[in-house]
Amino acid sequence: MSGRLSAITMALVFAAMVVPARAATIEITMENLEMSPKDASAKVGDTIAWINKDVFAHTATAGNGDFDVNLPAKKSGTFVLKKAGTVEYYCRYHPNMKATLKIEP
């Protein structure tokens, strides 16, 4: 019995090692024509959730074309990160609203 228990224990330990880590959700708030935080870090597979608390529409538009998320007033939008790198993004309607995402593999 102890050999079987040992094999089961080893199988469980191995399974725990190969299960991928859960992706995170990073929230970025748009309020008073500001993005907060302006600099955020994430990993490939994480979800970015932009929350527009303003009374007018915004966008989260990547300068490199990776994403362009429309955010109506008082609504939110999400995007799952697909590749590593540093992405600068802005609001197309309010170009002074800028932020940066640092995405790790």
Rank of each mutant, 00 (worst) to 15 (best):
M1T: 08
M1S: 04
S2C: 04
G3L: 13
G3Q: 14
R4T: 06
L5R: 15
A7Y: 10
A7G: 02
I8M: 09
T9R: 15
M10G: 00
A11P: 05
L12A: 03
L12Y: 09
V13P: 00
V13I: 15
A15M: 15
A16G: 11
A16I: 14
A16F: 12
A16Y: 11
A16V: 14
M17F: 13
V18A: 04
V18M: 13
V18P: 05
V19W: 14
V19A: 07
P20K: 15
A21C: 07
A21I: 15
A21K: 15
R22F: 05
A24E: 15
A24T: 12
T25K: 13
T25R: 13
T25Y: 07
I26N: 03
I26R: 12
I28C: 00
T29M: 07
T29Q: 11
M30G: 02
L33A: 04
L33R: 14
E34S: 00
E34P: 00
E34V: 09
M35C: 01
M35A: 04
S36Y: 08
S36T: 14
P37Q: 06
K38H: 03
S41A: 06
A42D: 02
A42N: 03
K43Q: 06
V44S: 01
V44T: 09
V44E: 01
G45R: 15
G45C: 10
D46G: 05
T47W: 12
T47F: 08
I48S: 02
A49R: 15
W50Q: 02
I51M: 06
N52S: 06
K53M: 07
K53E: 06
D54F: 08
V55N: 12
V55C: 00
F56E: 06
A57Q: 13
H58D: 05
H58K: 13
T59S: 10
T59G: 00
A60P: 09
A60G: 03
A60R: 14
G63F: 11
F67N: 05
D68L: 11
V69Y: 04
V69W: 05
N70S: 10
N70P: 09
L71S: 03
P72C: 04
P72D: 07
P72N: 10
K74E: 10
K75E: 09
K75S: 06
K75M: 12
S76R: 15
S76D: 11
G77L: 10
T78W: 05
F79N: 01
V80C: 01
V80H: 02
V80R: 15
V80M: 08
L81K: 04
L81N: 04
K82R: 14
K82A: 04
K82T: 08
G85L: 13
G85F: 09
T86K: 15
T86Y: 04
T86C: 01
T86P: 01
E88R: 14
Y89E: 01
Y90A: 04
Y93D: 02
Y93H: 07
Y93M: 08
Y93G: 02
H94P: 00
H94K: 14
P95H: 08
P95M: 06
N96W: 12
M97E: 10
A99I: 02
A99P: 06
A99S: 11
T100P: 04
T100A: 03
K102E: 03
K102I: 06
I103N: 01
E104F: 02
E104W: 04
